[in-house]
Amino acid sequence: MAELIATPGQTIGPFFHEALPYDHDRELVPPGGAGAIRLHGYVYDGAGAGAPDALVEIRQADAAGVVPTTEGSLCRLGAAFTGWGRGSTDRTGHYWFSTVDPGPVRPGAAAFFAVTVFARGLLNRVFTRCYLPEHEAALAADPLLAGLDPGRRAGLVARREPDGGLRFDIHLQGDAETVFLTFPGHRS
């Protein structure tokens, strides 16, 4: 069957805050619980200013490397881990999630969060990955990372913080521009 042409994206615009954020949207697990970590960072524009009107979404495996297909992301009652979260940036461009470290989805795989970024001024969503910094061998064997020069590769690997959290900044443009991804099936 011929592949249909996808509907174009359009910017999220400035007025999404009443619509998309919701209670506990960025809490994949309750903050402070056993195994909970804070994944956080800033979304920066090309002048190095934080983007106060961006939205970051993450999709991830659980600690055992299983990607959940459990409902309940919008009403986070009970204990189900759904592996998906949504966090808008604050006025400084900062976002955060309370979550767990994803496990590798197969033995030897590098563990990462799949990340989507939306913002006013960004005409279509962009995708990237946030890799865990541990497991050097898995990172070295990762096909995406292996093809990048060291400077750009470093931007996809989160930094572990003393409290166990992860710091991952997203640069939409500039010298430290994040490596954004295109997947088969995406068109220009």
């Binding site: 090309g46 490397g65 960004l122 093809g147 939409l172 521009e177 997947f183 088969p184």
Partner: peptide, 16 residues
């Protein structure tokens, strides 16, 4: 100031 200047990197989707 909010558009990436580099072409997106082709990746094979995996996991999540």
């Amino acid at each position: 100031l909010r558009h990436p200047t580099k072409n997106p990197r082709p990746a094979d989707p995996e996991g999540a």
